[in-house]
Computed example of a mutant assay.
Amino acid sequence: MTQRLQDRTALVTGSTSNIGRAIAQRLAAEGAHVVVSGRDAERGEAVVAGIRADGGKADFVRADLDGSREASHALAAEATEVLGGRIDVLVNNAGIYRTAPTLADTDADALDQLYAVNVKAPYFLTQAVAPRMVADGGGAIVNLGSWVARLAAPSGGAYASTKAAMESLTRSWAAELGAQGVRVNAVSPGVVRPPELDPALSFSENMTVGTPAGAPGHPDAIAAAVAYLASDDARFVHGSVLDVDGGRANVAVVAA
């Protein structure tokens, strides 16, 4: 594998499982010193151990990104220290999905928590990290959106709106920070099968019927896209949302 991120540092939120774990592993394999972050220390240390066993460099920093400015700024400060004084790449991956099928079923607490974790937490984390990136001469920020931000479904609108917010912030931050050397982009995943699931089990197969891919994706596909956007290969890419969704959002879905 290429070493496009050799001697760089990266903070990946929500990286103790699934997509975030795959991103942390890929950035480390590309040469970055990665801070794995999440609420579960046991899982986080397991991810770190795996990266180190493969010859990569990683450390775990526990964080509960509850949407408060204090929590996000504290993570930025600790990760910066662990990474030797700088963060070259920030991946805003941490997020939650609260089951709220319809407008009528969404209560105030659920909506507040979705926006706290999915929007406010990465907002304040970026607020803390970006100025230091500018001072250090540049960096790359990659946000995680979702296909549901642009292809509406009759349920899950509250969650979809948080991902739409992150895709909008991606463009706004790109406009604000690009001239100062910080590139901001996003990856929009489609239906992804967590690798710990038995491949024989059906997982949201109905959501991929009729798409060009025809099946759920693997977290490694998302990780590869993030690694590209974080690297100098994407030096001319600003404010983009890269769809990695098997064609779900952009190609007409035909029922089987």
Rank of each mutant, 00 (worst) to 15 (best):
Q3F: 13
A10H: 05
I19L: 11
A22S: 12
H33Y: 13
V34F: 00
S37H: 02
E42Q: 14
A46Q: 13
V47T: 07
K57C: 11
K57D: 11
A63E: 03
L65E: 08
D66A: 11
S68M: 03
A71C: 07
S72H: 08
S72L: 03
A77M: 12
V82C: 07
G84E: 07
G84H: 09
I87E: 05
V91D: 05
V91N: 11
N92G: 02
N93M: 00
R98C: 02
L111P: 05
D112A: 15
Q113D: 13
A116G: 14
K120T: 02
A121H: 07
A130D: 03
V134R: 15
V134H: 03
A140C: 01
N143F: 05
L144D: 01
A149Q: 05
L151F: 03
G156A: 07
G157R: 10
S161H: 01
K163E: 01
A174L: 00
Q180I: 01
N185M: 04
P189H: 07
P189F: 09
V192M: 12
P194N: 10
L197Y: 10
F203Y: 15
T208E: 12
P212C: 11
H218V: 13
H218C: 00
A221P: 05
I222R: 11
I222G: 06
I222D: 05
V226L: 05
L229T: 07
A234N: 06
F236L: 14
H238L: 10
H238W: 09
D245W: 04
G246R: 00
V253W: 06
V253A: 15
V254S: 08
A255H: 12
